[in-house]
Nucleic acid binder design. Structure first.
Lengths: 215, 215
DNA sequence: CTTACAATTATTGTATACAATAAATTTGAC
DNA sequence: GTCAAATTTATTGTATACAATAATTGTAAG
């Protein structure tokens, strides 16, 4: 599976946009990037198309492409959409999850608890992601799963901000348990409700997120 | 707002893929397309990136790009995801829809009824789309709205197949009324339920869709 | 000093040229 | 005649060259 230079560049640029290396509205300079990547403008331009298509940048004809960092409003909208996608996955998973899937879920939750016991935030974070991914998978709808994974990926940097504050992790674990038992009980509505409120950003979470955006 | 040649080409190719002009697995020939559009390979290749990014084609390095028409399974998954997205829009719209939004909805439904009275299937189809779009808008979440619009657009050709068969339109209208009244009553769960089952493809609809795929 | 216009520069968009790799075809051994 | 290796051909990926348009600077009039 040969990789094209352009694809690798697109991936790298994506990471740079995610990590906040480029701020909102900043223009992506073809020539400068071509130099940096030791490549001609062509693969850079092809990489741009990928960024633009995924909404990470905007292209204005004859002007250039400009990175688009989501503002507070769009961010909230994305989180809300994520909550609804998760709820949808959960509702379907409640009806379709296999015994093996439920075991994976229990294991994933176990790993979260372990990380929490060790106060290993980084590991809790990644195990938590896996926990949710088991649910996406459990929906038995690979199209929906892909959508959920995509948005999860897009929101990762912001989720990272909001997870590590006092009491949040314990509460998060409690919610996980509620989700797990609802899934075991195959109670679709309960799963959807639990996941929606687990993911939704409001109250204190909202203020934390807004505060962290300013930095 | 100058348009780039490559963007226009991407749009055209999208339509060609949608309309079934290209079948699944078919390779998109750069040179042939360059000739057809009277253009060099460069803008063709840039257009390809757009198609690939939106999942309409797959790119295999050093091999070419190949159109990806959804098979029966993926199609069902997409419809199911659409149902969940619509339910999500509806649930939010139930809480947020303005008086003006409700009026737009009533008007859109009125137009559907009118088209149905005239037995104008084409118009019913487009008015029906507008009806749903009012709900997307009603969610007051432009990110979610965009996702819904995107999938609606992607599913259009298949939806067209399944709408025109005996009795379906009358039933569809009845469901619309249920949706409208639930929205007026601001009953989020009821709206979500009604929209989900309205959009879901199952039973007779499923068989129709499968049958039409073979042609 | 400000404004408007002209000339210059920079940057994007497209065409062509070249390089690298995969597909196809030919050739030769068995 | 069949299979395999080698050669040719076709096609993709990248670099460069050119064209078109937008941004910038400079200049002169008021």
């Amino acid at each position: 599976m040969g990789l094209r230079r352009a694809d690798k560049i697109a991936e790298t640029l994506e990471q740079l946009v995610f990590s906040g290396e480029y701020s909102d509205g900043e223009r992506l300079d073809e020539l400068k990037l071509a130099e940096q990547f030791s490549v001609s403008r062509t693969p850079i331009r092809e990489a741009f198309q990928v960024l633009v298509a995924s909404g990470l940048a905007e292209q204005i004809p004859r002007r250039g492409v400009f990175v688009r960092q989501p503002g507070p409003v769009e961010l909230m909208e994305m989180f809300e959409t994520m909550a609804e996608l998760e709820a949808a996955c959960g509702r379907l998973a409640a009806l379709r999850m296999t015994e093996g899937g439920l075991q994976d879920l229990a294991q994933a939750n176990e790993n979260c608890q372990q990380a929490l016991n060790d106060l290993d935030y980084g590991r809790y974070y990644s195990e938590n992601e896996k926990f949710h991914q088991v649910i996406y998978r459990g929906s038995a709808n690979s199209y929906l799963e892909k959508q959920a994974l995509q948005l999860q990926n897009r929101l990762r940097p912001y989720r990272k901000m909001q997870l590590r504050f006092r009491g949040r992790l314990a509460q998060s674990m409690a919610e996980h348990l509620e989700i797990v038992s609802a899934l075991q009980a195959a109670d679709a509505e309960q799963v959807a409700r639990a996941l929606r409120s687990h993911v939704t950003v409001q109250g204190e979470k909202f203020h934390r997120l807004m505060a962290s955006l300013k930095s």
